[in-house]
Structures are given as C-alpha cells and as structure tokens.
Amino acid sequence: MRWESQPLLHVEHLTMRFGGILAIDDLSFAAGRGDITALIGPNGAGKTTVFNCITGFYKPTEGRIAFARKGLASSADVAALTTTGKRHAHMPSGDIYLLERMPDFEISAKAGVARTFQNIRLFQGMTVLENLIVAQHNPLMQASGWTVLGLLGIGPYNKREREAVDKAKFWLDKINLLDRADDAAGELPYGDQRRLEIARAMCTDPVLLCLDEPAAGLNPRESADLNQLLRNLRDEHNTSVLLIEHDMSVVMQISDHVVVLDYGTKIADGTPEAIRNDPKVIAAYLGVADEEEAQAIVGGGA
C-alpha cells in the first residue's frame, strides 16, 4: 500500500464551499509515489473540484494539501511546515509544498504538479510543436536571460531551444504525433488532442500528473493505447498519476489505488479489487435497487 508507506500527496480535511453549496466535505486521502491513483464517483461528486483545489485553480475553504516533490510527506514534517506559515521547505522527510497556499502557476512551476482538463485546453491556433515548447516556458525563460539576453542574441538560448525541441520530439514520438508536429493543434482529431494534452503536461517534467477524464470520448482502441501510455509514464518516467475517470475499464485495469467520492465525501478507498466489491460504491453508482446491474458496471473490464 504505497499510499500509506510512500505518500507524495496528502489531502487532509479538504472542504470547498461555493456560497451555500458544499462541494467537498471534509475529504482526506493520500496518493502514493509511483502509483496510478484513480478518483471516481458519480457525476457531481466533486472530483474536478478536488483537482482544481490540488492544482491551485480553487482556493479551498478549509483543509490542507501537502505535496512532497522529493521524499515523503510525513505528517510530523507537514505539521511543522504548516505552523511556520511558509509554502515550501526542505524537511527531513522530504521536499514539502503546501499546495493550498500556492498560486496555480507556481504549483506547476515549483511543486511539479501538472494537469490536463476535462474539456481539452490546447493552444488551438498554435502548432503541435509550439504547444510542447510553451510547456517548457520556465526553463527557456531562464535560458533567454528573461528575454533581455535572448533579444540581443547572447547566451545559451538557441541551444536550450534546440534541446526543448528534442524533448518535444521525444514526447511526440511517444504519442505517435511526430508527423503532425507542424499542424495546428486545433486541427487534430479528438483522440490525438487528448494525447497531446498529456504530452504537453509531461513537458513540464511533473512529479505528479493530474488527468481529468483522459479517456472521455476515446474509442476502445484509443482507450487501450492510453492505458499503455499511462503505465509507461508511471514505470519509465517516475511520474505518479492522479486521474479522474468514468471509464471503468481504464480505472480497473491500470490503477493501483482507487478513491471513490459521492456528494463531496469519500465513500471508499482501496485497491481496485476491494472497490469492485464494495457495496457502498455499487449503491452510489446505481442506487441500491439492482445490485447485479451495478456490479456489472463497476466491475466492468475485470
């Protein structure tokens, strides 16, 4: 159970209120380093809200989100960091960030948490290659001497830009889009856009990759390719993955750990096998009436 022995993300007592609506109610869970953690639940359960809190797009009403870029987020160190009032510190157990205190762009730039969106957010009018170069903005900005040296043509910018192109080529090759590098991102078919968004997030060198419904709208073949890609990210690129997904065949096949939300609270947390047989999960998905049919859906892809 890596989410217990090697947690890199600790969400604790997360509460998010929008006016009178309680979207997330005292949610706590951990994600393990090197795991693919799936966040599932019926529509409106608050999954995307959790994502937006983790990646800084929402400021949580209450709660703490501790993230260890390196090492562990041990509870003693997280508590110590919380009292200092700082956002980030190198603690004995690891390199800890308190995400709820950080603005969204710093969560990506400093903590190393990248994300994709439910409704794809590519730079449609820029080419596939440009999308991946923009993702490497911060290292390139530094190489261009914060624009000043780059404008004068001094410094390592040209070299770094070539390296950035090489990295982009690597990821394009990985998602089989190398031939379309010079096409506008908006011209790609839907499935390719989904994969490109993942590749773009990977170009920021994330430690944790948050994917919001990556398999939505994919056909079974594309869905199988996606499984392959996500496993590859976990196994070969040391990237932990947190994903929201409705497609149970994806969830059950690739995830190491499943967290189930309903009405903003956690109703189950465990391995895919445990979740598949959890009566609470089955009830949440289809109501209690027809247990057999619910079993068929939740257990799909077994």
């Binding site: 990646t55 762009f105 730039a109 957010r121 009018g125």
Partner: peptide, 18 residues
Amino acid sequence: RAWEALREDEIACRSLGI
C-alpha cells in the same frame, strides 16, 4: 510564445507554470 499562448488559453498557461 507565452503571449500567444495567453491569447489562446489563459487557464492552460497557468496550468503549465506560466
């Protein structure tokens, strides 16, 4: 490139650390 990305999608820019 960040300017043009900003014109295309500001939220995506922020998610990439810009």
